[in-house]
Design a protein around this nucleic acid. Structure first.
Lengths: 95, 95, 95, 95
DNA sequence: CAAGCCGAGGAAATGC
DNA sequence: GCATTTCCTCGGCTTG
C-alpha cells in the first residue's frame, strides 16, 4: 500500500513530502494568501486610526469615543453584570 | 444659521455643544465609520482563520506556518532597525 | 446567618457572597498586596529615570542607551527563538 | 581646570571621548544599574501576576479587581468628569 | 474545554 | 500641546 493511497500512516506529517511533491506550492499559496489578508487588515487599522485623528481634530475626546464603541458592542446584560459585580466588590471593601 | 456662526465662540471644546448642534451628526458619522471598518477587519480575521483550517486539513502544521509568517515579517523589520541604530550612532557622534 | 446558609446556592461564583462573608477580607488583602507591589514597582521606575537623568547630565545620549539596553535584552531572546524554531522543524519532520 | 573637575566645557558630546577615557566605565555602570533595576521591576510584575492568579483561584473576577484598583487610583473628580462626557456623547447619539 | 501564553491594541508618561 | 515612546491590558491562540 502506498502513501498516496491512504496517506494515513504518517499521521499529521503528510506534507513532509512537500520537498518532493506539489505541496510546496500549496504551502506557498497558503502563506501568501494569509500575508495578503493581514496587509488588508493593517490597512484598515490605519484607516481607523485616521478617523480617530480626525475626531480629535474636531474636538472630540478619543478615549470617550472608544468607550462608546465598546459599549455599543456589549450586550446590555453584560454591562449590567459587570456593574453589579463591581458594586459587590466595592461594598465588600466599604468603598 | 451656519455652524460657523453659532459654533465658533466656544474655543477648544466646540463639540461640547453636541447635545444641541450639528456635531451630533459628526459624532455619529465618526462612530459608524469606525464600526464599519472594524467589521471588515473582523471579517478578514475570519478569512485568515479559514485558511489556517484549510492548511491543517491539508496536513500542514499550523504552528510552523505561523512561525514562518512571523519570521518573514520580522526580517525586514530587523533590517530597518539596524539602519535606525546606525543613524542614531551617527548622530551621537555628530557625523 | 452563616456563609453556607446565604451564599452557597450561587454555584461557580462563590466569592459573590463577599458582601456577607469572610472573603471581603480576602479581597482586601489581595488588593492591598497588589497596590503595595505596584508602589514598589513605581519606585523602581523612578530610580531608573534618575539614572537616565544622571546619564544625560554626564553627556550621554539617553536614546542610545535605551537602544543598547534593548539590544542586550533582545539578543538572548533571539538565540532562544532560533532554537525553538529548530525544535519545531525537527518535530515537523519527525526527527 | 581639568575636564574631570567640571566636565562641562564640551557640552553634550563629552562621552564621545569614551573610546579613550574613563566614561566607558561610566556608561557600563549606568547600563548595569538600569538593567539591575529592571530585573527587580520584572520580578515585582511576576509577584503581582501571581496574586491575580491567586485571586482567580479564589473565585474572584480579575478584570473587576483591576477596575477597582484603577478606581482607587483616580481622583473622584476625574471619574465624574469622564462619566459626564460619556453621558453627553450618549445623548448626542440618542443612546 | 480550561488555563497559560503571546501578541496586538489602547492608555499614559514624557520630550520636543 | 502634540507626537513619540513606553507600559499595561485584553483577547485570541495553543496546549494539555
Amino acid at each position: 500500500m502506498t502513501e498516496e493511497e491512504d496517506g494515513s500512516f504518517d499521521g499529521q506529517n503528510d506534507p513532509d513530502r512537500a520537498t518532493g511533491g506539489i505541496s510546496a506550492e500549496r504551502l506557498r499559496s497558503i502563506i501568501e494568501r494569509i500575508e495578503r489578508l493581514e496587509e488588508e487588515r493593517k490597512a484598515l487599522s490605519g484607516d481607523v486610526k485616521d478617523i480617530y485623528t480626525e475626531a480629535k481634530s474636531a474636538g472630540f475626546e478619543v478615549k470617550i469615543i472608544r468607550q462608546l464603541i465598546r459599549l455599543r458592542k456589549q450586550e446590555p446584560a453584560e454591562i449590567e453584570e459587570q456593574e453589579t459585580l463591581l458594586d459587590i466588590y466595592r461594598r465588600a471593601l466599604g468603598m
